[in-house]
């Protein structure tokens, strides 16, 4: 599909996607409730840090870290794998494939169109963090805000592209929802969602640095809480966007190969 077609259709796709997000607002709020694990973790880790800090984390640091985790999780997420599995099984994907725009673009725009609704939840949480911890809960410099936005986009891109690559496996495996569950288990363990990855032993942390999971949640959270200086931020953003590029290639490959096997069942 030409970039021109995508570019020209983008505003309307976004607007209609947003209208759909508003129509499903109740469903979204229920989903938000299912992502409150960071708040539980926050309480647990605050109790652990009451007597003495854990690494560099005192009680206030855990508050800002987990509130940031909650906020980032609202945005750096995707459910494309479930959608692809459902649409392939039901044959609904046919309707997307008939249009002169790749379904991958429409999945992406539908996800991005949810951002305003999710910001309604995420932004007050960040403000709450500032109210509880003070200004150090958020970046102090413009470049840090810029890096945070870049890291957040990268985190969303990793979530989305991994979902597409896993979702496209259903063309080969009949269903790839179990593969997604394996991914999610690794995500919970390795992403910084349950605990800051810097609290893990050095060997484990090295392994995690080479995996994509921490770049989805941990890195944007660390950027938001101002954990790194300029050089370290650039290095980590480089690693994150290398993963984005690798996953984009993988997603495009599995999708292209998978669509050839699409059986368009169900009418």
């Amino acid at each position: 599909m030409s970039a021109r077609t995508v570019w020209r259709a983008f505003p309307t796709l976004l607007r209609v996607g947003f209208a759909e997000a508003v129509a499903y607002r109740a469903e979204m709020l229920i989903w938000v409730l299912s992502t409150t694990m960071p708040l539980v973790n926050m309480v647990l880790w605050m109790a652990v840090a009451r007597d003495a800090p854990v690494g560099r984390f005192g009680e206030a640091d855990f508050i800002s870290y987990f509130l940031a985790t909650f906020a980032v999780r609202q945005l750096a997420t995707s459910w494309a794998a479930w959608l692809i599995n459902w649409e392939v099984k039901q044959g609904v994907l046919s309707m997307r494939l008939l249009r002169p725009i790749s379904p991958l673009w429409t999945y992406a725009v539908e996800s991005i169109a949810n951002f305003p609704m999710r910001l309604v939840v995420a932004a007050p949480v960040v403000l709450l963090s500032v109210a509880l911890v003070g200004a150090r809960a958020v970046p102090q410099h413009a470049w840090q805000w810029g890096f945070f936005v870049l890291a957040l986009l990268g985190g969303w891109a990793i979530a989305f592209l991994a979902n597409v690559a896993i979702g496209a496996l259903c063309f080969f495996l009949e269903s790839s929802e179990r593969v997604l569950e394996v991914w999610l288990v690794l995500f919970f363990v390795c992403s910084g969602y349950m605990y800051p990855v810097e609290l893990l032993p050095p060997t484990l942390r090295t392994v995690i640095d080479w995996l994509p999971f921490r770049y989805q949640i941990g890195l944007p959270v660390e950027m938001l809480t101002g954990a790194f200086g300029w050089e370290e931020s650039v290095r980590l953003l480089g690693a994150q966007w290398a993963w984005v590029a690798a996953l984009a290639a993988l997603a495009a490959f599995t999708w292209k190969q998978g669509v050839r096997r699409f059986a368009a069942f169900g009418g």
């Binding site: 505003p11 309307t12 796709l13 209609v16 209208a19 129509a23 499903y24 249009r99 002169p100």
Partner: peptide, 15 residues
């Protein structure tokens, strides 16, 4: 969940 007019507008943009 949206009126057909929204799908029409979407198709106008896509095509």
């Amino acid at each position: 969940d949206l009126p057909p007019a929204e799908t029409f507008e979407l198709n106008r943009a896509i095509y």
